[in-house]
Amino acid sequence: MFIELKVVVRLLSYAKKLTWKFLFLYFFVNSFLIAQTASNDFNFFSPLHRLSFGNHLYFERDYLRALNEFREYLKYENQDTARFRFAECFLRIGRYQEAADNFKGLFYNSTLQNESRLAYLEAQFQSGDLNSFRSIARQDIYTSAKYSREIERLYYITHLMDNSTLPDTNIFFSVFPDSNKSNVRNFYQRKKHPEYKNPVTAAVLSGILPGLGKIYVGEISDGLTSLIATGVLTLLAFDNFKQSHNFRGWLFTGLAAISYTGNIYGSAAAAQIYNAGIKYNFDNDVKIYFEKRNYFLPEKYF
């Protein structure tokens, strides 16, 4: 401790004795080094750092923040990868129109022409306007030779997702990988021959025998209940008329008539509900199946 103090005292005393030469040397060298460090000062917001941080956010799937970083970077520099990722961020956060517009900018004179065309079509597809997607996917300027198979698959998948006419089976199945063909074939058959129930048939059946229409649409317990209820009410009406209880007879006749007509209407409605359920389940199954496989598109383009 004593020795250290001694050194400090000596240093101070020496500092007092600094000549103008030393002072000049100190300020010259230090100012030079500070200038150097200032130029090397870490700038969190330099374009290059924004790009690095943007890429980090992009890989963390924090697309909204990555978007801002790429935007700032692209104000100063032009780089295809950054521009592509900028567009892809829009795609991943569901801003499909902006994604499509930005992918379009990479269609020409870019190293990512093929990827941007596929991603553009993905944005069109994800936007939900399947008719527009189908018309664009058939135009040469939007398609890519490198990803023709992916585009073709996406094109055929759309036919399972709306009311468009299904293409021929040979062409349809040929674009899907062998491992998925049986599932796709199943979807195709379900779409082409949906197991719908005819509401008119259900109503007519219930007209012939109360509850039969409900049994036809698979609501067996409802059908039997309707049959028993209408039957009991009719029997009560008949019995009361027989016993000359006319008021009760008419009361039960009215109730039986309501039950009978209500059952006819109910059977037709049940068939419609059944059909809606078939369609909903089909749409849901298609969506889950293809979404799980990302519609056979790359999860990340590069």
Binding site: V7, R10, N30, L33, I34, A38
Partner: peptide, 19 residues
């Protein structure tokens, strides 16, 4: 030696503080 020590001491302070 003291002179060099003082110079190094003064210069070495600047960078880490800035960083």
């Amino acid at each position: 030696q003291l002179k060099y020590l003082l110079i190094i001491l003064l210069l070495s302070l600047s960078y880490p503080v800035k960083a």
